[in-house]
Simulated scan of single mutants.
Amino acid sequence: MPDVVLFDLFGVIARRQSPAAKRTVAATVGVPAPAFWDVYWRLRAPYDLGQITGAEYWRWVATALGTVFDEDRVTALIAADVASWSAIDDDMVALIERTAAAGVRLALLSNIPEDLAAYYERHHGRWLRHFDLVAFSCRIGRAKPDADAYLWCCRELGLAPDRVLFIDDRAENVYAAERLGLHTHLFTGPAETAQVIDATRPQPEPDGRRA
């Protein structure tokens, strides 16, 4: 039985960017969307790892697109980008709260830049407090699917990989964790996730004793 459930954030607890939110970001950039999104993701890793600031990231994006963003545009882009990742799944938050109330240890591992991490700490502390460990890539200098991101969490939790259940919506992240010996679940929705978590908990025997 795993001792800790290690959650991904985006695509599991928080929602991925909606089409409307993506249009807002692209409109703020002011260049054709296909070219922009290619650069957005291609340059993202150092930002997620905390190696550059949001302002530096967006100036890199501007350079790659052959343009220049002034300070006001950079500020607007940081705000639009954060807003595009800010929606959460209320059903998953409720599941986290129920799971924590049942005595299950929880941890969080997310690829996330500092601007967005700070936003979640300011606005979602009510449910973030349920996690014994919050591992934001920008703070720990490691990002999925790098093996050391998972191993860092295991070391901080004081657990061997086979004592951890990892839940993520991206197959490449799940496979990377599985190769290290973590139990894994590819997220498809709250109902299935609840069943998987329940299956990891000891069940009482007929006479009331724990199995």
Rank of each mutant, 00 (worst) to 15 (best):
P202H: 04
A107I: 05
D132A: 14
L108P: 00
V134I: 01
C153Q: 07
L109F: 04
Q203D: 12
A143T: 05
Y150G: 10
G189W: 14
V164G: 10
T200W: 15
F166P: 01
R122W: 10
L159Q: 06
R142V: 01
P113S: 11
E156K: 11
W127H: 05
D207F: 12
I140R: 01
I112L: 14
V174E: 00
E178P: 00
D132C: 00
L116W: 08
H185C: 10
L151R: 07
A171V: 12
L128D: 04
R139A: 15
D168F: 07
P145H: 10
A107T: 04
H124D: 03
A143W: 11
E178Y: 13
Y119I: 10
D207H: 02
W152A: 02
I167E: 01
A117N: 08
V164W: 05
Q195V: 15
R126G: 08
A147M: 05
S137K: 05
R201V: 14
R170W: 03
E178V: 00
A101L: 14
E172C: 06
A102T: 09
A135H: 12
Q195E: 15
C138L: 03
A100G: 15
P190S: 07
C138K: 00
H185E: 06
L165H: 04
E114D: 11
A199W: 13
A143K: 07
F187E: 04
I167F: 05
C138T: 06
A135C: 09
Y120P: 05
H185N: 10
D198K: 13
L186G: 03
